[in-house]
Amino acid sequence: MPDQQQRADARRNYARILAVAEAEVAAHGSAASLEQIARTARVGSATVRRHFPTRRALLEAVSHERVEVLRIRAGELAGATDGRAALLEWLGDVVTYCVEARGLAAALSYDLEPDSLHENSCAATIHEAGDPLLQRAIRDGAVAPDTTITELITLIIGITLATESLSDPAGRAHRLFRLAITGLSPRR
């Protein structure tokens, strides 16, 4: 019985730490203090580190639900008639979520090397969700054939991180994203 009690305590600690971490990351982004999370959750720093051995592990756990929503949204858009519009709508959703969920951009960040995706479950999920939308837009001739989903997500991460401390980060991030997509040419 003591073993079952320990597991139940560990599950409660995990849930409490995760709830506190979500609030801290929302308030302070990826720089949220692990020590403050431990204090607020009323557990020791070692308990936090046992559940989340790295900051990335904590950010991934906090971001899991939002990433899952983005995965589902990509599936919904897969049947749209305009492949480019579907891809851009989904990428716009990624921008919105990265701005709203401080820390999500950091959780998604990864090297441009394909092997690094396996080390980051958030990035891997986003990659797997968005790549079919991109491939369809490429097949339709609406996106340059050498474009990768990794490049598009990296662009979004950069924009989000650059705008997160500005006034109106959502408006600024979306404007920069539209600028990156449409280029510098004036509208005709």
Rank of each mutant, 00 (worst) to 15 (best):
R84P: 00
E22Y: 00
A23E: 12
H174I: 05
D146K: 15
R49Y: 05
A162P: 05
V20F: 07
L34P: 09
A15V: 05
P186T: 03
L155V: 13
E22F: 00
R7I: 14
A61I: 07
L117C: 08
V69H: 11
P169T: 11
P186I: 01
V25F: 03
V48L: 02
L184E: 14
T150W: 06
T163P: 00
A19G: 07
R49M: 07
R11N: 12
R11L: 10
A19Q: 09
A21K: 06
F177Q: 04
A27D: 13
R66G: 09
E24A: 08
V62L: 07
S116G: 04
I149G: 08
A57C: 08
D115I: 14
V69G: 04
E65H: 09
S167P: 12
A32C: 03
Q135K: 14
S165L: 13
I157F: 03
T154Y: 14
A123N: 03
R178Y: 08
S121K: 09
T154W: 15
A162D: 13
Y110H: 14
H51K: 05
G79S: 02
R66T: 09
R175T: 10
A57T: 07
R42G: 03
A106K: 05
R188F: 01
S63R: 05
A173G: 08
A105W: 03
R49Q: 07
R73A: 02
Y14D: 13
P2W: 00
Q4I: 06
E151Y: 13
Y110S: 15
E89T: 15
L152M: 04
P145D: 15
V25H: 02
M1V: 12
R188E: 05
T47D: 00
I153L: 15
P186K: 03
G183L: 02
A129L: 04
A26E: 06
Q4K: 08
R39L: 07
N120Q: 03
H51R: 10
G130D: 02
A137T: 09
T54Q: 07
N13K: 13
L179F: 10
R178N: 13
L133W: 07
P169I: 11
R73V: 00
L59F: 08
T54L: 05
H64K: 13
C98G: 12
V43G: 06
G183H: 02
G83S: 14
T47K: 07
V20G: 06
G79M: 01
A31P: 11
R188C: 00
L176Y: 11
M1F: 09
G103E: 05
A46G: 15
A142V: 05
A57G: 07
D140R: 10
S185R: 15
R49V: 00
A129C: 09
T150L: 15
D9K: 12
L59V: 01
D9P: 01
A80F: 02
M1K: 10
L179W: 10
R136S: 13
F177N: 04
